[in-house]
Nucleic acid binder design. Structure first.
Lengths: 343, 343
DNA sequence: TTGAAAGCGCTAACAG
DNA sequence: CTGTTAGCGCTTTCAA
C-alpha cells in the first residue's frame, strides 16, 4: 500500500527547528553576507537533521534556479556528448545543475526549446550549434546569460566558443599535400544563407579548404561537391567526385559521418583506401576511432569547448554586463589508416 | 549596446489587457472548466498580442510545471536515444516539456540527479535503467509519479516498461541452434547483488540463455564468460572462451558493444566470421547496423518503449493512485552477416 | 548581525 | 460564468 507523499520540508520548518528566522536560513543557503558562524552551524545542522532541500521553483521566483540549460541539436552526435562532458565536469562542485532539452533540430523546434528554458527561469543557457538567426540569438541573450558554442561570428550580447575550423581544414590539406596529393577534393554541406555562410562551421571548413589549397599552389585543383553533412551526402558527394574526368586522389569530407558515406562510394567504385584514394574526416568521433574504420580525422576536443563554455557562462551569470568574449580553440589532426601517399 | 532585459509579461498584464481577472486567464491557460468561449477568445488574443508566456517556476509553486524529467545513465548509448525519441514523440502536442539530466552513472550521481529533478518540481520522472535500490525507487515514486524503463520486477508505486530479455536471449539461442550450432557460449555482465540478479536486463539475458539452452537439449554446452558490458569486457570474455579446450562455435554477447569487443578477439585469434565462428549481439544499435560491422543482433524497439513510458507517466500524473502497470515488449532478431551455419 | 514583512507569478478555494 | 483573495516557498528590502 503506497503511502501518499509526506509534505516536503520547507524553509519555515528549518527556521523553526533551528530557532532562527527564515531570512537567516536563506542567507546560509546562499552563502550570503550577514550570518554569524554560530548561526551558520545551527542552521546547517537543522538542514541536515530534517533532510531539507530548497525548492528550485520557489527560489526561481525571486532569485536564481541554479539551473543551466543546454540545447543541443542532436543527441546521437558523439561530439556533442563530449562538449556536454566538458560542461558538467566544469560545473561539478558548483551548485548548478545542468538540464538538457532533447530533439531540437530545425529553427522552429529550437525556438520552442529555448522558450521552454526561459520559461523555467534557467540561470543561463548554452546553445550548441544553434541555427537561429543572429537577431533571435541576441534577443535570447538579452533576457538570459548565454554562451553559443560552435558558431563563428561575435556578438555584443553572448559569448562564443568555437573550434578554428579554418585551421582544421588547413591541417587536412597540409597533411594530404605533404603526402604528395594534388587533386584534393572536398565534400561540403551546402549553404546559401549569407549569415550562416560566415558563421557556420561547415562554411568555415570549406573556406579553410579553399584558402589552404591556394596557399599550397593548388588553386586550380580546388574541387568541391556540395551536398549535406550526412552519410548519404557523403556517399553522393563522393560518387560525384569519382565520376570526374580528372578523379581526385584524396577526399576531405567535412564531417566523419560524411567520410563514412564517402568510403562506401569508394568501395563501390572498387578503389582501395588509402592505396587507391585517401579519405579524411572531421570531428574525430568514436566512429573514426573505431578499429575497422580507422579514419584520419580532425579532432576538436569537445570537452575543452564545453568546459570553456561553462566557465564563461558562470562568469556571465555573476556579472551580466561584462564584455563578451570569443574563445577559439585549435584543432589537431589524428592520422589513421585512411590517408596515405598518393598512389 | 545591449539593452537590458525588459520586464517579462505576466498574467496580470494579460488580465489587464483583456479586461478580465487573472483567474480567467489562468483558466484559459489550463483549459480549465468555467470560461465562456467569448472570454477564451479575448484572453487568447491578449496572450498573443503581448507575447505572454507563463512562468513555469511560478506555476510549479502552486500547480504543475509541465515538465517531465528523464534520467538516463549514458548519453552515448544509442539505444537510450531511441527511447528518448519515443518519449518526445509521444509527448509532442501535449504541453509537457522533456528535460534530461546528463551524466548519471553510479548510484550516487543518480541520487543527486533525481533529487535535482524533484527540487525543480517536475511533474513526473522517467528513469531509464536506474541502478538505485528498490527502496530508493519506491521512495522517489511516492513523492512524484514515476515510470522505470529497462528494469524488471514490479512495484506498487511505479510503472515499468521493459523488453522481454529472456525471450530475446531465447531468440538468439534458437537462431544459432537452428544453424546447427551446439557449443553456444555467452558473455554476461557480472552481477552479484541479489536484487539486480532478478531485475537487471543483463541478468535476465543470462537466464534466458540458460533456459533456452536447456530447452534445446544443450544443457551440457552452457558456457558463460562473466565480464562486463563494455568493449573491453567483450574482448576479454571472447579471449577466455576461445581458450577453452572445447572452443565454442558461436558467441552470444549480451550487448552490441560487447560483441564488437568479441569480434576483435576473434579476429586476433585468426578466425573468420561467420565461417569460423558466429557472433551475435543485443540492442541492434547503429553500430550493429553499420555496414562494415553488420552484426546479427536483438532489436528492442526503444522508441516503442519510450512511447509507452510517456503514455503511462501522463496517465499517472492525471490519476496518482491508479494501480501500477508493467509493460513488457517483445524483441525481434535482426539477422546480419556475423552469424551463419556451423563450420 | 538579525528578523519582520512584502512580494515574485501563478493557481485554487470560495463568493458572488 | 466570473472575480476576490489567500497562499505556494523562497529572497529581499528595510528596520531594529
Amino acid at each position: 500500500m503506497p503511502r501518499s507523499a509526506p509534505r516536503r520540508v520547507t524553509i519555515i520548518d528549518v527556521a523553526r527547528h533551528a530557532q532562527v528566522s527564515t531570512t537567516a536560513v536563506s542567507k546560509v543557503l546562499r552563502n550570503a553576507y550577514g550570518a554569524s558562524p554560530a548561526m551558520r552551524a545551527k542552521v546547517q545542522q537543522a538542514i541536515t537533521e530534517l533532510g531539507y532541500r530548497p525548492s528550485a521553483a520557489a527560489r526561481g521566483l525571486r532569485g536564481q534556479t541554479y539551473t543551466i540549460g543546454v540545447m543541443l541539436p542532436e543527441l546521437r552526435n558523439l561530439f556533442f556528448a563530449d562538449i556536454l562532458d566538458g560542461i558538467t565536469a566544469q560545473l561539478g562542485g558548483t551548485d548548478y545543475q545542468v538540464l538538457l532539452a532533447p530533439g531540437c533540430n530545425g529553427e522552429k523546434e529550437e525556438a520552442r526549446v529555448i522558450e521552454a528554458m526561459i520559461d523555467r527561469n534557467m540561470d543561463g543557457l548554452v546553445l550548441i550549434a544553434p541555427v537561429s538567426s543572429r537577431t533571435r540569438l541576441n534577443s535570447v541573450a538579452r533576457s538570459v546569460p548565454t554562451v553559443v558554442v560552435g558558431r563563428h561570428g561575435s556578438s555584443a550580447t553572448y559569448d562564443t566558443v568555437t573550434d578554428d575550423d579554418v585551421a582544421g581544414a588547413a591541417l587536412v590539406v597540409e597533411h594530404l599535400a605533404g603526402l604528395g596529393h594534388r587533386r584534393i577534393a572536398h565534400i561540403e554541406h551546402h549553404e546559401t544563407d549569407p549569415v550562416r555562410l560566415v558563421e557556420m562551421p561547415n562554411a568555415q571548413r570549406a573556406n579553410g579548404y579553399r584558402e589552404s589549397m591556394r596557399a599550397h599552389g593548388l588553386a586550380d585543383e580546388i574541387d568541391i561537391a556540395s551536398t549535406t553533412y550526412t552519410h548519404e551526402g557523403g556517399y553522393l558527394g563522393a560518387k560525384e567526385l569519382l565520376a570526374r574526368p580528372r578523379r581526385p586522389t584524396a577526399i576531405f569530407a567535412g564531417a566523419d559521418v560524411v567520410a563514412l558515406g564517402a568510403l562506401e562510394a569508394v568501395a563501390e567504385a572498387g578503389l582501395s583506401v588509402p592505396g587507391g584514394i585517401s579519405v579524411v574526416g572531421y570531428d574525430n568521433s568514436a566512429l573514426a576511432a573505431f578499429g575497422p574504420v580507422s579514419l584520419t580525422s580532425v579532432d576538436q576536443d569537445g570537452r575543452q569547448m564545453g568546459a570553456n563554455a561553462a566557465r564563461l557562462l558562470v562568469d556571465r551569470i555573476g556579472e551580466h554586463d561584462r564584455r563578451t568574449v570569443q574563445v577559439k580553440l585549435s584543432p589537431t589532426l589524428v592520422v589513421r589508416r585512411t590517408s596515405g601517399p598518393v598512389g
